[in-house]
Design a binder for these strands. Structure first.
Lengths: 217, 217
DNA sequence: AAATATTTTTAGGTAAACCTAAAAATTAAA
DNA sequence: TTTAATTTTTAGGTTTACCTAAAAATATTT
């Protein structure tokens, strides 16, 4: 199994396991990777033989320590390249995902570490996601969803749960970016949409769907 | 055929065609890519169907205009990343080839162009090879091999013909790098090895094999 | 011009990573 | 607790990019 493919499976399993402690289900992995479940079953067996995941037929899979390490290294590379693309090449946060998705598979430890150093060992990527250090440790961040902020409460925007172009561009348009402060002015009873003010100025309505993808502290 | 594989074939054919005007032979392509001739024959047919090369059975192949464009773009990417690795990340010229060999296949036009701009649109890579511009034009460089420099002649080191780690490390050790001036002090009749002085100081003997891989003007 | 050597192609095979369709196991509902 | 629905796996198939061995074409020698 090519390291490219392998890393994508491990990343998907890592992500799903974060959401669902039991592990990652075949169907969910397939959905995540845009492939069919039958293909996942096949791949899962190989990853298990390689000692990268724990697998029992018909059960959700989890990563072994080794598998987790590889997943985290891949995430580290992805997020470092995202910082590079934004900080050094001037891309916007909604443009970088597909590029980082390819760059993350370049596998030279020394390259990753020098890149990190060149970027000043950043702790967060342009979407506010923490970048694991070379030993795989993430900066602790206990953020909450904007939907969890009470009426008249204020919070600082620290990240996004969704990385799609359309979502990020919408945030740009209404002036929401990392570090700004958001005050909840009104919560509409009917649909749970909320009126917020951005940095105490601009007021704008956000659907619950949008608010739930905005992370704050 | 994946763009990764495709680009490697086109690059190999480009390189071989530079040496041998008739085109690239099956065996030579196979040698260049470390694969078997039968595999090359197979690939060649596909590249021909795609309009990337001119191919007639049992004849050497050449690139079409389109194939040449892709080859040159790949070379552009390769060399830009090499500049990045040396100038920004501090790698040495003998360490960068394998990394650039992977980075060159990242295929986002905008990424390449922003990288070029970030690097100050360099015209040469760390080995002295010209970097084609975005339209595929190379800076003109009519360099000669060090073996072509006459006794008592002086030349400026502008490039290398061989990119192997061992060769480049040897040059480092004896103080030969881009831009230094080399004076030919003696040519040994027996084996055509030459005694040179580096920047008018250090004197050292070079085998013909080494001298023929050093480019000057 | 034959004979020999070399190069290229063809034929048939493998492993990886995907697929569809159907069977088996598990989970949820009646 | 049986039936129905869902999920996972199995079985069998495809394409890509490689392989070996043998056949065919081309090039080189004698």
């Amino acid at each position: 199994m090519s390291s490219h493919v392998e890393e994508n499976y491990l990343k998907a399993i890592y992500k799903l396991t974060e959401r669902n402690k039991d592990g990652a289900y075949t169907n969910d992995i397939a959905y995540e990777l845009n492939i069919k479940p039958a293909t996942v079953t096949e791949a899962i067996k190989k990853l298990s033989e390689k000692g990268l995941i724990h697998y029992e037929k018909y059960k959700a899979v989890t990563l072994t320590e080794l598998g987790k390490q590889i997943a985290i290294k891949t995430i580290r590379k992805h997020r470092l390249w995202e910082v590079f693309l934004v900080e050094k090449l001037g891309f916007k946060w909604d443009e970088i995902h597909p590029m980082a998705e390819e760059l993350e598979h370049i596998g030279f430890e020394e390259l990753t570490e020098r890149l990190a150093q060149f970027l000043g060992n950043p702790e967060f990527d342009p979407h506010g996601d923490p970048i694991p250090d070379r030993d795989g440790n993430f900066a602790k961040t206990k953020s909450i969803k904007l939907t969890g902020v009470l009426l008249n409460g204020t919070a600082v925007m620290t990240g996004v749960e969704n990385h799609s172009t359309s979502f990020l561009q919408h945030l740009d348009k209404i002036g929401i970016k990392l570090g700004i402060s958001i005050t909840v002015k009104e919560i509409v009873d009917f649909d749970k949409s909320m009126l917020i003010s951005v940095n105490g100025e601009k007021e704008v309505y956000l659907s619950q769907e949008i608010a739930s993808n905005i992370l704050c502290k």
